[in-house]
Design a protein around this nucleic acid. Sequence first.
RNA 1: GCGCCUGUAGCUCAGUAGGAUAGAGCAACUGCCUUCUAAGCAGUGGGUCAGGAGUUCGAAUCUCUUCAGGCGCGCCA
Length: 565
Amino acid sequence: MQMTILENLHESIKQVIKNAVEKAIANNEIDPVSEYDIQIETPREKEHGDFATNIAMMLTKILRKPPRTIADAILKNMDFANTYIAKAEVAGAGFINFFLDNSWLYDVVGVIDEQGDNYGRINLGNGKKVMVEFVSANPTGPMHMGNARGGALGDCLASVLDWAGYNVTREFYVNDAGNQIEKFAVSLEARYIQELKGEDAIEFPEDAYHGDDIRQHAKNFIALYGDKYLEAEQTERRKALVDYALKLNIQALKDDMDLYRIHFDNWFYESTLHNSNEVMETIELLKQSGYTYEKEDALWFKTTEFGLDKDDVLIRANKIPTYFAADIAYHRNKFSVRGFDKVINIWGADHHGHIARMKGAMQALGIDPDRLDIITMQLVRLMRGGEIVRMSKRTGKSITLHDLLEETNVDAARFFFNLRQASSHFDFDLELAVEQSNENPVFYVQYAHARICSIIRHLSGEGINVKNAKDIDLTALVQPQELDLLRKLTDLTEEIKAAATTMEPSRLTRYLMDLAALFHSFYNACRVNCDDQNLMHARLKLICCVKTVIANVLNMLGVNAPEKM
RNA sequence: GCGCCUGUAGCUCAGUAGGAUAGAGCAACUGCCUUCUAAGCAGUGGGUCAGGAGUUCGAAUCUCUUCAGGCGCGCCA
């Protein structure tokens, strides 16, 4: 894939600097330096030019001269021939600021014209196989607000990586085995018996699932099968109940994800790891690695070898493998069986304690732990009109993802959950979300898109259509609002690169809000439908480019780009 | 007790592989619709970057420390 406009520009400026440094050395104006890194940055203040370098400050330690002296010497030897650089000057502590001819900004229009729906794609990932595993909610009940945040985050991160040139797989891990399924069975059974024989017939275990959904499953089960399992063997009864309810719960997870516009490439069932014997195989490999030992009838993993406080059990004294053991097998499967180059997990912050031991387990298996990235997302604190709403599954009174999707709209929820970084604690106020007021910036961005569509419709009605970039004199665009927009459009590729590198899709919502703000300013300052035909076509093209970019990024976020509002 | 995350404007948050005068939205106040969508724009006020010390040309950003909040330290998942 070709270099982006900014990459090209940075390279050409670096070349100018490099040539100038070499010339300054040749002229004995500075002492020889062999290795140095040239950084190009964008100054915050416009008076400081379009780009700047801190090369003089970087060299000040090596050369033992004041930065401004070095900067002067470098500047004196600069040659701007065949570049966009109009002038450069030394400023501040020793920055060299570059002021460019505006013409470099027009290039982006041609690029967007050519790439259209794909403008913004870069080849950072080089087709590497990467998995993003997210949500992975327990199938024992409905999803909560944490899953809502994780879903929006994971899905958008996957999109960002896709746009950055990775080969991305979205996966949902279904914990359809193990202890919580046992607990699920016990819960269902107790409700089943209570429904048939009264509340006092059996005591409902304190640590079972108290949610109303369990009771509902029992009722529906009875409607289908009556009391025929009342006298059956306990194992048979529990199996029938779990088979029935689990299937429905998993389908509900799929339906809700569908509503939320999240489409997983794969739903991976924990049970397959047990059935295929991969769990035991993995444990065998860990034994061979020497990182295990037996104590009190259980098999332990030497987590302490990896700097942690205590070791962890892999196989309990009752010979049943732990969740940890299954999880290790799962991750081994991702890397060794399915060959992912890189795996990203999105976990709630309450699981952060497991990161080190999982990485340790990977190392024990000979898998480079750096190939596993775990994003810990701070949990969502649910508020309603400023009051905290508890979200425990046990009380059964939590607000579910499904409730959220019924109360608010998907665009708002997905955008809202990507406003903040994963590391930030997040208060989600239901009243605000439901209001869909201007508190939610998604409308601001969508409004910009709709406004552009409206202008295009108007002009189209007058028989004026968008021309190809090559047929337009873009130099008509000289207003600061126009130039700011062009610059922002050019920035998209860098923004995607940064979002992919830092694994923070929240950069995109911020980028969109900035872009929308620039457009709204432009809208108030410049009229597209003006008398100057040349200017009109240039502006029309400009807003079409803005529309394309807004739509592309909204598409990455899984948010609609409405033509009318 | 140990570990992880967080602390920036009244509120919600950006900015952290060190860079120039710390930004945005909301809230408050003042203006802007007989022409392309006012869910908009322009402007004003608002700061001990939690406190302290250190590293250096330069610290919101790095180190140490104190304080405050969240989370975790099961043969649970």
